[in-house]
Simulated scan of single mutants.
Amino acid sequence: MGYVTSLFARKMVAAAGDRIDADALLLLIGIDPAGPWDPKAMITAESYYAMLERMAEQIDVTDLPVRTGASMRLDEYGALGLAFKAATTLGASYARVERYARLWTSVVEYELRPSAGGTLFILHRAGARRLGLRLSNEATLASAVSIARQVSPVPVAPMTVLVRHAAPRRVTAHEAWFGCPVHFNAELDAILFSNETLARPNILGDEGISRYLVSHLDAELSRIPDAPEVVRRAKDAIAQALSEGTPKMAEIARSLGFSARSFHRRLSEHGMSYHALAEETRRDLAEGLLRDDRHTLAEIAFLTGFSEQSAFTRAFKRWMGTTPASYRKQRAGS
């Protein structure tokens, strides 16, 4: 069963204002209205979606996700919010979200993917496109822009926002908030940023503080229960095949004894996509190999499935906010 942080539920209820019985809704999903706003306190995704759908029976929720996303503050995210602030660039900030999102949800994964004209910040969430999930996705995309604007020295506006589900009854609030076209019925839930925007230095970026916070987040991540067996086996199979390039999902599925459709379904049950799993495997393998001085950067690029060292360097900087050479030097000095 998937989970999300109770913070999201509290923010949705707060954004609705006095048009609903906030205390009753929170109690319904097991949240003490008078309790602390603790992002580590989790609720099931199912109960969260059901709460949103009950709200939709009482009020017009068309603009609610935008208002909720706009209200999100980095200080409410705990150590991850601080790490987002301390990253040296906005791209590095989003790389923190991509890596550490498991600290607040098990049903969503994030991915930074190069695209024509910029980089996509993609939201992966498996499951039927029920109303609660759709509202949650819209709020997540809105909050991703909200937190970016809190660290940037200049106003942040995406190039385009993509949403997989059909448009709500009106989209004026969405386009006003994002400051760009919002395309519904798209193939992805994603935000397209220019590379210039992602390369811009953050207001409070600090490499020293950033390294400390990342080590803290790594420790928190290590305390999350191990991944399901199918995920562990898939990561092992991907790692073994990477020296010949990134393997296709069908190849990994076959090696594990699954059909491609069955394998995709098994990953989706654990809130994962194959692309995100392959990227995670590449990143983890690269980090491990960089700790071993016997491997050159060219060898590590080859072992992690890159045809050129320059491509590996770009990917690693996207993942970690620093180059492989700098990362190795920092680890050696720690």
Rank of each mutant, 00 (worst) to 15 (best):
Q58E: 15
M1D: 08
F84R: 12
G2C: 04
V145H: 04
T160D: 11
A24E: 12
Y49K: 00
L221G: 03
A34R: 08
K40L: 07
A83W: 05
P36L: 09
R54F: 08
L135K: 10
A157D: 04
D75K: 14
V171M: 10
K248N: 07
S268H: 09
A239S: 14
D236R: 10
A24S: 15
R233A: 15
T160H: 13
Y327E: 04
L80T: 13
D218K: 15
T246Y: 05
L290W: 07
P158T: 06
I59S: 09
A83M: 05
E175F: 01
T44D: 02
D236E: 11
Y327R: 06
I203R: 15
L162K: 11
S143I: 01
G245D: 06
D21K: 13
R73N: 11
T105R: 03
I122S: 02
S47P: 03
P114V: 11
R96L: 12
V151F: 06
N137A: 12
R134K: 13
S115T: 09
A126S: 15
R223G: 00
F306P: 00
L7V: 10
A22Q: 13
A50Y: 06
A227Q: 11
E280W: 01
N137D: 14
T62M: 00
T68S: 08
G78F: 03
A41V: 08
P324N: 06
L27V: 07
M72G: 04
Y110K: 06
G2V: 03
S307P: 03
A250M: 10
H165I: 09
S152C: 08
T313W: 04
